[in-house]
Amino acid sequence: MVDPKFAIEMQRVGLQLGNQNFQFDCRLPTGAVIAVTGASGAGKSTFLNLLAGFDTALKGRILIAGKDVTEVYPAQRPVSLVFQDNNLFAHLDIFTNIGLGINPSLKLTTANCRTISSSLEKVGLAGFERRMPGTLSGGERQRVAFARALVRNRPVLLLDEPFAALDPGLRNGMAALLLDMHSETGNTVVVVSHDPDEVKRIADFGLFLEDGRIVVAAPIDEFLGRADHPGLTQFLRS
């Protein structure tokens, strides 16, 4: 398959939710770590929901990895997701949770089982297969979510403030893990973040949203240097 230049394209995508109107138009480079920033209510979650397929656009087209996914059901999009929380089914063990990422009917081959175990090793949770999510710490649960993203191996990984619930020391470690996975798989990562330090540390490309629109979209150096947006400046200083 031809590796397109842009992993994600939003072509004049429009959406109305209640009183808010969203208009997104952007082209995001393949293989980059893209940070999505903005004040609360700016539309970051909606942006992500549109990419994931939880919200449906009224106008425009969304392309992921060269495929028009505007009408495509979430599971059929070439994406993996990590939410801030509730990434795992609380009543199923770790192995099953990851296994569902491979096959949603849990029909797994022995090769699959080995993949699951090795993914757990990669995120530093070797031997955790039979544990229940309730017995893991927040950071460990997020790592399991990463492990699942690993086994799914999709071109795009969407993360919605994945580390916000963790303490700062842990955040650095998790960010490093994310970068490790990124360099190993070469996927495109779209991460919604509230933390400018995090953005500075991991992002290659930055998006700044305001009032349901993308007002700044640029490679990271340029992004960090932009002085023409008071909102962005405020964010970077926080």
Partner: peptide
């Protein structure tokens, strides 16, 4: 959301 993103549907779900 989780089920939709993983595609766990129907009987399996």
């Amino acid at each position: 959301k989780l089920a939709a993103s993983l595609g766990v549907t129907g009987w399996a779900r």
